[in-house]
Amino acid sequence: MTTEPHADMTPDTPPEPTGPGQASASKRRKIQAPEVAAYWAERRRYLDRIRRVPEIRQRYWRAIGIYLLRRVLWSFGFFPVFIAFWVPFVLSSFNPVVMASDLIPLLENFVNANPEVQANTISTLAIAWGSVGFFFLVFDFVLTPFKSPYQYEADVYMRAWEQLNHDQLPDKV
C-alpha cells in the first residue's frame, strides 16, 4: 500500500483558510503520511500476529473450503441444470405438455440409437455441462470474491484501534 495523499490533498502546502471556522476543517482534511503509515503498519503487525493463531488458521482453511464448494456447486450443479430445464420450458411456451411431447420422441430416438450415437450424445451433453459450469465458475469467482477471516479480524481490530487513537488520526484513513 502506498501512503501518498490523494491528488487533491498536498502534504507540503496546506490550503489557506478563508474564514475563522475553516481553519480546523482544512486541517482535518489534510492526510498526514505518517498517520496513514501508522494505521497500515499496525494493521500489518496485527495480521502477522493473528496468522500464528491456530484457531483463526483453521477458520481460514474451513472458509476457503466452504467458499470453493459453494462456487463449484452453484456453477456445476445449479446453473447447468437450471438452463437445461429452463430453455426447453421457454421454447415450449411455458407449457409442460408441449415440452413433454417434444422431448419424448428425442428420448425414444436416443434409446433406439446404436451405442456409438448414444456415446456421442452423452459426451456432447457432458461437454455442454462442463462448459456452462466453467463459464459460470469464472464469473462466480469474479462476482463473489473470497472474504478472508484474517481480513475480517483485522477490520474489527482496526476499528477499535481507530477509536482508541481517534484524536491522532485524520478523518478518512
Rank of each mutant, 00 (worst) to 15 (best):
V90G: 03
N120W: 06
Q118C: 03
V90C: 07
Y46K: 08
S26H: 12
L106Y: 13
R51H: 14
I83E: 04
R52I: 02
V53Y: 07
R59P: 01
Y60R: 04
V36E: 06
Y46W: 11
E116A: 10
R29I: 00
K30Q: 14
Y60Q: 08
Y39A: 00
Q58R: 14
A100E: 12
L91Y: 07
Y46R: 11
E42W: 02
I50D: 02
A37K: 12
G77F: 10
A119T: 14
R51A: 14
R49V: 00
E35T: 05
A38M: 08
R44F: 05
Y67A: 03
E42I: 04
Y67T: 01
A41W: 02
Q118K: 13
S101L: 12
F79M: 15
L106Q: 15
P88S: 04
A41M: 04
W61I: 12
L68A: 11
F78P: 00
L69P: 03
V87N: 02
W40P: 01
L91K: 12
I83W: 06
N120I: 01
S93C: 03
E55W: 03
A37F: 02
R28T: 05
P88K: 02
I56K: 02
A25E: 14
V53K: 13
R45I: 01
V90D: 10
F76K: 08
S75H: 05
V81H: 12
R45D: 10
I56R: 03
A84M: 09
R70I: 00
A113D: 10
W40V: 06
K30D: 10
F79R: 09
I64L: 12
A84D: 03
A33D: 08
K30V: 13
N109M: 07
L107P: 00
V81A: 15
I56W: 03
L103R: 07
R43E: 15
Q32A: 08
F94M: 13
P115E: 13
G77T: 10
I56C: 00
R43D: 05
P96D: 05
S92T: 05
A33Q: 13
V81E: 05
R49H: 06
P96N: 06
F110H: 10
R62W: 14
R70E: 10
V72A: 14
A84L: 10
V98G: 02
A63Q: 14
L47T: 07
V36W: 00
I64Q: 11
R45N: 09
D48N: 14
V90P: 01
V90I: 11
I66R: 15
I66G: 14
G65K: 12
S92Y: 03
N95E: 09
G65W: 12
P96S: 10
N114G: 12
V98M: 05
W61V: 14
V87R: 05
V36I: 08
L106P: 01
A63F: 06
R29W: 03
K27N: 07
Q118T: 01
A37C: 03
L107I: 11
A119R: 15
A119K: 15
G77I: 07
N120T: 09
N95G: 02
D102E: 08
K30R: 15
P115T: 12
E108F: 04
K27P: 01
L91G: 07
N95Q: 09
I104C: 00
Y39W: 13
N109W: 08
V98C: 01
R71C: 05
F82P: 03
